[in-house]
Design a protein around this nucleic acid. Structure first.
Lengths: 195, 195, 195, 195
DNA sequence: GCTTAATCGAGACGGTACGTCGCGTCTTGCA
DNA sequence: TGCAAGACGCGACGTACCGTCTCGATTAAGC
């Protein structure tokens, strides 16, 4: 049997967990990523610093979980055309990145992730891999419809879309046009689709 | 006349200037961006901290000048085709970002720039604007050749290319394939070119 | 009758008690008083922290019991002379203070006791009072032998002896000469005896 | 020549130094030794913690300098009798230990000094050695007057007096009788003087 | 046999202090 | 005025203990 033994000692308090995440999000909102310290989060949450370090190894992981825990889990779009599907995928990406908190956080967060190989691979497996799987499915369907020929470099497309969104939204702080997702999807679809 | 008055007192020592830039580059190489402090740069350069703050307002600007001062000033590519021109522009972008020092620096540097509106606009005017001008020229020629119709959203294309390169190289630390530039240029060209 | 009701619930485990005292002594030996934490004692004893706090209110009391529980209960010396009796009392004092563990512990322990009035009076009643009683007896006999006249300030003598021993052994970490007890006793005897 | 080169860099600010010592003394007064933290001293003095750690390696040395810097430098007593001289020396000892701040500090301070061999020897050379020299002088004069015969174990006497004072005042927190010095001096004088 | 209640190991909890580091500014003496 | 050196106030870092608490499990004594 695989009955996982109930862990020893006092279990972690769920309310503590939530208070930390909430405090983190609040502080990010009005202080930005760099201006938010672990101590400040702890104070605001009414929590000891240890309670934070017990759960997360550092600021980057905490903030990542606080803001990006809602990985896209909706149904994979199936509009009947590659362009339609890609547009929806891109729009989902945008929706996640375009919140005020996310915009204020992305550059600093990505910098911290980039600086640490362990974090980098965590980001890849936690965030990028699911997105890649969804996109691969979309391309598969497009191929079976005959919309595209041969293989598509899914990673390349994903990087292109994510990179463009990051540049626009996170880095440049550009006002977010609702057409951006459509335009990007259009470019990529046409760029790939030509056989 | 606008002859700026020659400044009073002892003139700044050019060797100090160079020593700082060299020390900054060295430290970036083996400590990364976050691990490089102004104090450390000063010590390594055999220089007082004031000598640094007298020249640059902070770490971001110093590192930016030390590593990215060589803005692309070569001739605008003119291969006769949009694809060829874009490939060359993208390759230039890659060459600049793909040095070890640049890869180790980009995310942290961009985070610092993103956090400060003043820096952000400086980046836009110093770095992005020239690249945009060169790209606009390439598109103009393509239009006059009849390769593309109507207007092209140059900013969008630039963000897409730069974003993709940043994601691949700076953030993910991916091994750099020489074909990346060609592939990206191909996607964008096709994506735009279709009329 | 006042037969104390046998307590409800699971009785305390004697082995736990002993394991704690043994762990405390071990840790004191190679980490000193300040370097010994309650957590460390608990871990070393294979015991929860509560098991400690259930028995002792703090580190000072625990260590005190672990190292000084063997209050001098031997027969009161009766050598026939004041000098002989005082020498033996002093030697007993020395024997108790001169163990490596005691030497490593005394200053820190006394500091904790001094900082808390409750502890201070506990020390007085538990440790000093018995020693004082024994010494008073010795003086009584000396008076009845005619060795000393009038009253003797027992407290003063005790403080003098204990203070000197503490200074030599605990504070200065001086190598312990076997003659120290004799010399101190001699001084005090002569100092008091003169009428 | 032995002209000591003027040190490089900005010299340490004397007012900072004094503010720290004053804040330390204040806090000791109403918080005790254990209740006084370096951070609190820094805050109270309006000073950064570094300014403290730059000057003293830890709390013990800082407090020691703040409270006991005024080593007895008055003229060596010369009353004509050993008893008179010793009484005065003991009274000086008492005067130094019997201030409220000193009483609140001594046990904790001595514990910290005892825990570190380096501090222990510092205490010996800075504090005890001068006192020993003064006492040796007193004994020399007594010998030349014929009051005492042969050699006297100055260290033993010093430890006895200091230990007794420490026990009474620092450890037990006893109310301080003005006669204590006289009584102690009397015991020691008689104890030694008998030939 | 069942209930009651205290104890057990383990470890989470809110705090507080630690000693270090980097920031950007300032104050020296010398060039 | 520039310059190297380094002190300055500030504030965050991540760690260590404190003494209390909350788990599930264990161990008697009283019903």
């Amino acid at each position: 049997m695989t009955t996982s033994r109930s862990p020893l000692g006092r279990p972690r308090d769920q309310r503590t967990h939530e208070a930390i995440l909430r405090a983190a999000e609040d502080l990010i909102m009005d202080q930005g990523y760099a201006g938010t310290s672990i101590s400040a989060i702890a104070t605001r949450a009414g929590v000891g610093k240890d309670a934070i370090y017990r759960r997360w190894p550092g600021k980057a992981e905490l903030i990542y979980e606080a803001l990006y825990s809602t990985v896209d889990t909706g149904p994979i779009p199936d509009t009947g055309t590659l362009l339609g599907d890609l547009t929806q995928l891109t729009r989902a990406l945008l929706d996640e990145f375009a919140t005020p908190a996310a915009m204020a956080t992305l550059p600093g967060l990505l910098a911290d992730f980039a600086a640490d190989p362990a974090l980098r691979s965590r980001l890849r497996s936690t965030f990028l891999a699911p997105a890649r799987a969804r996109m691969a499915e979309v391309f598969d369907r497009a191929a079976s419809r005959g919309e595209i020929a041969g293989t598509v470099q899914v990673d390349l497309v994903l990087d292109t879309l994510a990179g463009a969104v990051f540049f626009h939204v996170g880095l440049m702080g550009e006002p977010l046009t609702t057409e951006l997702a459509a335009q990007l999807a259009e470019i990529v679809t046409a760029g790939i689709g030509h056989r």
